[in-house]
């Protein structure tokens, strides 16, 4: 084959498998000891501490403190996991989105000839594969404790347990996606974590509680997520005054909060100087 004929041939599609890229992204995250410790503490650790404290209080003063389990305490457990799980998702998303850039490894990956979009896309399943097992484990502890330690209280139904778990995983995954996109855009883990924590923990709850903003409050993902939360646990996971939303608006808001960070992150990854 001559040089001329090779150059004239149409470009060959990239047939290299995608899964190893996902595995590599998972490897980069799970080998960060500090990150593993932080995420463990914010998910499994948070669930263990929450129910341990409730159990100790009940054992110390049963007349004043009810059993550690039951629907009410599942609500509290999910509330804790929702808050800390989103912080963990933000940290993991920021790491997945910016660590290659911060370490200078992104250009080493680009010179392999691999599509930049593939390099970005693999961070999504790679990071979720790292994060969600911790969240699921934390929720499993909460679920087992809320049933096992229910005592005289009503135990949560299987439906509620499944709905609560799916809702929690969905919320954490959404915040992971937002952090991934923002970190890929900014190229900085620290800035991403700072911005998103300020938004999640301070700005969004404050804005959501300002009734004068009206329907404007519906653009925040916390409002949409609160709308989708199972009724039995909704009070503990909604922040600020509940902004009533239609289901269509809820779905639209969540789709936009998922799609925009992914599109922006992919665009920046494809366009940036490596």
């Amino acid at each position: 084959m001559t040089a001329l004929s090779v150059a004239a041939a149409p470009p060959q599609p990239d047939r290299r498998p995608f899964l190893p890229l996902v595995t590599a992204d998972l490897l980069k995250l799970r080998k960060r000891r500090g990150l593993v410790a932080t995420v463990t503490a914010m998910t499994i650790g948070a669930a263990v501490v929450t129910y341990a404290v409730l159990a100790i209080l009940h054992a110390a003063n049963p007349a004043h403190h009810g059993p550690a389990g039951g629907v009410a305490n599942l609500m509290h457990g999910v509330g804790v996991l929702s808050l800390l799980g989103c912080v963990a998702a933000t940290i993991v998303g920021a790491s997945a989105g910016a660590d290659d850039l911060n370490a200078g490894v992104f250009r080493e990956l680009v010179v392999t000839g691999r599509s930049r979009l593939a390099l970005f896309a693999s961070r999504l399943p790679g990071g979720l594969a790292f994060l969600l097992p911790f969240v699921a484990a934390g929720y499993a502890i909460a679920a087992v404790a809320s049933v096992g330690l229910a005592g005289s209280l009503a135990s949560p139904t299987t439906t509620l347990l499944v709905e609560g778990g799916l809702w929690l995983i969905g919320e954490v995954a959404l915040f992971y996606v937002v952090a991934l996109g923002l970190a890929s855009l900014l190229g900085s883990r620290t800035q991403t974590v700072g911005i998103l924590l300020a938004f999640r923990l301070a700005l969004a709850p404050i804005l959501a509680s300002i009734a004068a903003l009206g329907v404007f409050r519906e653009v925040f993902p916390t409002a949409a997520l609160g709308r989708l939360a199972p009724a039995a646990i909704a009070d503990d996971v909604r922040q600020g005054t509940h902004a009533p939303m239609s289901l269509a608006a809820t779905v639209a808001v969540l789709i936009l909060w998922t799609a925009i960070p992914l599109v922006v992150g992919a665009w920046r990854t494809a366009a940036r100087d490596a």
Partner: peptide, 8 residues
């Protein structure tokens, strides 16, 4: 391994 994952 990370780079090999990108190369094939």
């Amino acid at each position: 391994r990370v780079v090999a994952a990108a190369r094939g």
